[in-house]
Design a binder for these strands. Sequence first.
DNA 1: TGACAATATTCGAATATTGTAATATTCTCA
DNA 2: TGAGAATATTACAATATTCGAATATTGTCA
Lengths: 91, 91
Amino acid sequence: MEIDIDIEEYTAIFKALAHPTRLTIAYNLMKKPECNVNRMSECLNIPQPTVSQHLSILKNAKVITGKRCGNQICYKVDNKKVISILSQLAK
Amino acid sequence: MEIDIDIEEYTAIFKALAHPTRLTIAYNLMKKPECNVNRMSECLNIPQPTVSQHLSILKNAKVITGKRCGNQICYKVDNKKVISILSQLAK
DNA sequence: TGACAATATTCGAATATTGTAATATTCTCA
DNA sequence: TGAGAATATTACAATATTCGAATATTGTCA
């Protein structure tokens, strides 16, 4: 019964995605990359610090990355494995 | 920014899979269905009651189902969405 | 029926996660 | 430089999860 995937790696990914707010953020970022924090906060109607905390969890799990674009920080899903998982969901 | 997937449904799935033991069980069951509890307990070297608890969580999340086969209960992954997610992992 | 094998449930302590509020940091640009 | 916008961090109470131990339940078959 050999296992051919990295269980710890995927456990971390699933854990990061196992929250409605974070899954929504990640899924939306996959479909439409480059979104800043305030915009997410407004769209989701969730306080900005709470959004930042969830983004931090997603970043630590290597699900997303952020880069500064002038005034703000633009996030996107930057993980092939995550993209292939999220892409499955709408099928 | 319309969302076209059922966030709650997938959150429940990811939450169920977001544990090393449960992910291992689900992944193995997908690759080789029909495994009973004691066998899992032995293969994983995890106490039987603990395995049962994890199976219960996977069942509640509709990830697996179990049916009695004579003396024992055989579990398998019985959820198309979960199968399509788990199938991605080895790619 | 009764013994045994297989599986499930309950409980409690330890740990982790969550949301909110308050505050801090970082960057831009006038 | 300094004000303001954007983002991040901290602290804490409430809630949820985890594991192990003890025990209970369920089904089979002699």
